[in-house]
Structures are given as C-alpha cells and as structure tokens.
C-alpha cells in the first residue's frame, strides 16, 4: 500500500513539473511574440511592388514603436481603425505636425489635397496608391494603433532582405 502511494505521488509530482515547464515555455513564447519579434504573413495588393500580391512572410519587431523610434518611410503593422480584429501593413508617410499632400483619387483625377497631421497621429499610405485603403480614406490614425515595425522579409527565400 505504501509503495503504491509513493509511486503515484512521484508520477503526480513529475506531471506537475512537466506542466510547469510547458507553461513557462508558453509564457516565453508570448513575450517573444509580443515584445521582441514575430513572423507575420502579409498579403494583398496595397503594398505592391514592395510586398507581393500572393503573400510574403515578414519579420516584424515590437520594440521601436514602444520607444517612439518609428519615422517616415518605415513599413509598420497597424490595427485597422475600421475593424480592430484586422491588421494592415502600410508605410508611414508623415508624423505628427507635418504637412502632407496627396491625390484624392489617383485613377480618376489629378485633384490633390493638403492636410496637417494632428498631434499624436501618423499618416499612412500603401505603396500602391491605386489599390490601397489608407489614410486617404480614413484620415490620420492615432500612434497607439501601431503594433510593430516590419524589418525584413523572410519568405520567399530569394527575396530575403530588408524592405
């Protein structure tokens, strides 16, 4: 009886240890994925010719936007202001306080508008101005919606490199 009990405590102890290691691993994964870097699949026509239509895997890092180190020209991951469950990839064109002028509808007319980006906001645009839903539709977006900065492309492997 005593032997049987001892055996089961040993098994229970070992399974708790294993579960703790697994939980720690999940925590490490979460922190790496949210605070350091993570691969992201991006697709769609809006960032042509920088990113492919059919899908690229890019590596994005989550440090510089927390420190306020993103600037014009950076490709960033943004939570869409129209649907918070969706992430979009766009390029920052202007930071707060800067003046930006853009074509309202480049495929139809040459009409352009000039706006000043308000405090705490950024102006984002896709590289393909003919097929991109960006700040020209919904205006400047708050800096707090930026989720990460795309630093390099990982897949396809022959296009490996920074953007």
């Amino acid at each position: 009886m005593k032997l049987w009990f001892g055996k089961w405590t040993a098994i229970a102890k070992e399974s708790v240890d294993r579960a703790a290691i697994f939980a720690k691993f999940l925590c490490l994964l979460h922190v790496t994925n949210n605070y350091i870097f993570a691969p992201t699949l991006v697709y769609g026509p809006s960032m042509l010719p920088t990113l492919n239509l059919t899908g690229d895997v890019v590596l994005s890092e989550f440090i510089s936007h927390r420190l306020g180190k993103v600037g014009p020209g950076d490709v960033v991951l943004i939570q869409s202001p129209e649907n918070p469950r969706k992430m979009i990839t766009k390029r920052i064109v202007a930071m707060e306080g800067e003046v930006v002028s853009f074509l309202v509808d480049p495929s139809r007319s040459e009409k352009s508008r000039t706006v000043v980006v308000p405090k705490g906001h950024v102006w984002i645009q896709g590289d393909n101005i003919y097929a991109s839903k960006d700040s020209r539709n919904f205006g400047p977006i708050p800096y707090g919606l930026i989720q990460g900065k795309v630093c390099c492309r990982v897949w396809p492997i022959d296009c490996f490199g920074s953007l």
Binding site: P118, K119, G120, H121, G144
Partner: peptide, 17 residues
C-alpha cells in the same frame, strides 16, 4: 473586441500614445 454600452474601458489617448 466585443464591448457594450456602459462598459468602463482603458484606452490609449489618441493624441499621445
């Protein structure tokens, strides 16, 4: 992101992140 009327939420200020 399912919220309803009357929920008290914490959010980032749009003018200063």
């Amino acid at each position: 992101y399912k919220f309803s009327h009357g929920d008290v939420v914490v959010f980032c200020s749009p003018s200063s992140y």
